[in-house]
C-alpha cells in the first residue's frame, strides 16, 4: 500500500479537504490506528491458515501406516482414508439438515412476513433471532435426552417397517436413536432460525408496489407471494441456506453429543453405521490425543476449513445473484 494518508482522505466523499490543515498529527495517528486494526484482521487470518498448515504438516507428510485408527501400532490406513469418511459424514449430515430446514425456513419466514398479524410478526422475528443464539450444547442435550428416544420409539420403526425398501431407511433401527437421522433433525432445528431470519428480511423488503400491483390485478395472497415476493427473495433465501449449510458443516457439540459414530461410508439413516463428522470427531478425540494424533486432527480441521470456505464463497456469489 503506497498511498499515503492525505491521498486517502482526498478520495473519500465524506472527508474532503476540511480536516487537512488543522491537526495533521491527530489524523495521522488515528488513521494509522484504524488501518493497523485492519491489517491485524489480515494477519490473524493468515495466522489461522499458517498455524493450521504448520501443525497439520506432520500428519500430511507422515507415512500412511501411522495415521488413522491403529496408527500408533503401524496399522493405520493413511490420512486420506481417515478424513474421507469424516468429510463424507460432514457433508451428508449438513445436506440432510439443509433439505429439512429450507422448506420450513421459507414457510416460517413467509408466515412471519406475510401471514401473521403485524404486531405478532415483530415479536416472532425477535424470538427467531433469540433461538439462533441458543448455545449448540443445549440443542445437543435436547437431542440426546428428548428427541433421540422419542424418534427411536415412535417414528423410525414406522419408516423402517413401511418404507424399508428405500435404501436410506433400511437396516436395523438403533434403539438409542443416536443415528444420522436424529443428527440431521437437530441440525435442521439449529439452522432453521438462521435461514428464517435472512429469508424474512428479504421477504419484508419486497417492493410494496409490486405486491400491491399483484393484488390490484386480483391475485390471491398466495399468487401475490409467488409472482412478487418469492422471485424477489430468491437470492436471499439461497444465501440464507448457504449460511445455514456453513453452520451445519461446522457444528460440533450437537453432533458429538448425539451421534454413535462408526468409521464407514453409509447413507442409512437409522442404523448404528453412522459416518462421523470432522468437527465432532475433533471434539471427541482431541482431549485424549497426543503427538501425531493431534496433528492428524488439526489436518482434518484444515479440510473442514476448506469445505466451509468453499461454501461461503458460493454464498457470497449467491447473495450477488451470480449463480442459479
Amino acid at each position: 500500500m503506497s498511498t499515503d494518508t492525505i491521498d486517502d482522505t482526498d478520495r473519500t466523499p465524506t472527508g474532503g479537504f476540511a480536516a487537512e490543515p488543522v491537526s495533521k498529527v491527530g489524523d495521522r495517528v488515528f488513521s494509522g490506528l484504524s488501518r493497523g486494526a485492519g491489517i491485524i484482521i489480515l494477519v490473524t487470518l493468515a495466522g489461522v491458515a499458517m498455524f493450521l498448515v504448520w501443525n497439520a504438516m506432520p500428519a500430511l507428510t507422515a507415512s500412511s501406516k501411522e495415521i488413522g485408527p491403529g496408527g500408533d501400532e503401524g496399522n493405520g490406513k493413511g490420512f486420506l482414508s481417515y478424513v474421507g469418511t469424516l468429510a463424507f459424514g460432514t457433508v451428508w449430515a449438513a445436506l440432510l439438515a439443509l433439505l429439512i430446514a429450507v422448506p420450513f425456513g421459507v414457510a416460517i419466514a413467509l408466515y412471519i412476513s406475510h401471514y401473521a398479524p403485524k404486531r405478532l410478526s415483530r415479536t416472532l422475528g425477535y424470538v427467531i433471532d433469540l433461538l439462533a443464539a441458543i448455545p449448540s450444547v443445549v440443542y445437543g442435550l435436547w437431542g440426546i435426552f428428548v428427541l433421540a428416544p422419542t424418534m427411536a420409539d415412535h417414528v423410525y420403526p414406522w419408516f423402517s417397517d413401511h418404507l424399508g425398501f428405500v435404501p436410506m431407511f433400511s437396516g436395523k433401527v438403533l434403539a438409542s436413536g443416536r443415528s444420522m437421522a436424529t443428527v440431521a433433525l437437530v441440525l435442521a432445528v439449529m439452522i432453521l432460525p438462521i435461514i428464517t431470519a435472512i429469508s424474512r428480511e428479504v421477504f419484508l423488503q419486497t417492493p410494496r408496489l409490486n405486491e400491491e400491483a399483484a393484488l390490484a390485478l386480483g391475485a390471491t395472497r398466495w399468487e401475490m407471494i409467488r409472482i412478487a415476493v418469492l422471485p424477489y427473495g430468491k437470492s436471499g433465501v439461497i444465501s440464507g441456506a448457504m449460511l445455514g449449510l456453513g453452520r451445519a458443516l461446522g457444528e460440533t457439540m450437537a453432533v458429538a453429543l448425539i451421534l454413535a459414530p462408526a468409521n464407514v461410508y453409509s447413507l442409512k439413516l437409522f442404523t448404528s453405521q453412522n459416518p462421523n463428522t470432522i468437527a465432532a470427531n475433533i471434539a471427541l478425540q482431541f482431549p485424549e490425543s497426543t503427538g501425531l494424533e493431534v496433528n492428524t486432527l488439526i489436518a482434518t480441521g484444515l479440510v473442514l476449513f476448506a469445505i466451509t470456505l468453499f461454501v461461503n464463497l458460493m454464498s457470497r456469489r449467491a447473495a450477488r445473484g451470480n449463480i442459479f
Binding site: 489461522v48 456453513g246 461454501v311
Partner: peptide, 9 residues
C-alpha cells in the same frame, strides 16, 4: 471469510 470460520477451527 472470518465470519465463516467454524468455531472448532
Amino acid at each position: 471469510v472470518m465470519t465463516g470460520i467454524p468455531s472448532i477451527v
